[in-house]
Design a protein around this nucleic acid. Sequence first.
DNA 1: TAGATTGTTAATCGATTAACAATC
DNA 2: TAGATTGTTAATCGATTAACAATC
Lengths: 213, 213
Amino acid sequence: MSITVSKSAFRRLPGYLNYLYHKKSQGFSTISATVMAEEMNINSVLVRKDLASTGTVGRPKSGFKVDELIRNIIEMLGYNNSSEAVLVGAGQLGRALLSYGEFESHGVKIIAAFDTDQEVCHTEINEKKVFPLEQLPRLVSRLRVPIGVIAVPAGVAQDICDKLVDAGIQAIWNFAPVHLQVPETILVQNENMAASLAALSQHLKRNQMGWRA
Amino acid sequence: MSITVSKSAFRRLPGYLNYLYHKKSQGFSTISATVMAEEMNINSVLVRKDLASTGTVGRPKSGFKVDELIRNIIEMLGYNNSSEAVLVGAGQLGRALLSYGEFESHGVKIIAAFDTDQEVCHTEINEKKVFPLEQLPRLVSRLRVPIGVIAVPAGVAQDICDKLVDAGIQAIWNFAPVHLQVPETILVQNENMAASLAALSQHLKRNQMGWRA
DNA sequence: TAGATTGTTAATCGATTAACAATC
DNA sequence: TAGATTGTTAATCGATTAACAATC
């Protein structure tokens, strides 16, 4: 399996997957890239290329088999073999993430959380234990957890990040609004809500002012 | 003010802003694009172009004034004149979003929430009232709220989306893992956590297998 | 067969990077 | 002045789109 996908194509795959689940639930067993493209507002050649990148081949006239596409996209996205993660910061956002049941089916399984607040330590949220922050280095390195989720205030995020890196983490999912400094081999995936918010307000401003894209 | 910024440049601005706040707190009054680029792992020409896109001019040798950059980026991102929003779906995620205090300083002010659950209706979360879903059309159209935040399960997201659009919303911030169908004039900003998760697992898989980018 | 749809090759577009002159 | 740093112009790179032949 040495199929390569561009980063941008990769980001569209989850969207296709949702769409395909929806179509499947409506009873479709095949789907054409043309229809997909139209309904998803994406260029049809792009859709065909993206689908081809998953290793699926379609048939002229009938299109692609829905089940096969779903299987291949799941495979591509790594949803079927999930990696373990720890979450740091059991505040409002952290608790929401812990309670959100969908991560595991998306390739990431949160196995424990850490916090400095004595009140939440040793409690459980959605069956995940919250440990005192001091125990992070020992637990993470012993269990070889590959993913760290940062849901702490901006001011302490870099500090937590360093601790995770020292403990041997390989990828970080960062919800704190800061640019984290990490060694090159470590992936930081920023959940960039600030950028989303900015895009929203810009859209509104443009509309108000009658600007053009 | 008719400065145009590419979408990709726009997405980097919040990062620069965080970085600049950090530098300012350390006592820096000027900063060079060269240093910024190095510390943020971005190409320095790109940084200079991005900063130029905010209308800020630097001086050879000394660089840019931190305060001026901060002012201009905030202006560009629309953080200083926030738009009102309503949130639909006061579940775990919805409540976390309601409790998260940072949106207002990022240009979006959530003024109310809606839910179908009788138990949460008429309660307050972080001083925001939760109304029964039935009242959405009337309230949103009467108050001319421009932004709708969707934090409901995937199955009902399109339905909620349609209601928001009918009520005259202009932009949607979508946390549900579905591709929403909207008229062309409406912006949908997807908070694409599934894509982030996929990127994380792909990074891990590649590292394990010794693949190259 | 005729027509819809795939998949590929070439053209375009936009964003990033390289090279370099201008300037404090 | 010398050197760091800006800002601009040209080159490169990657992703998207257009054109079209292949095929069910």
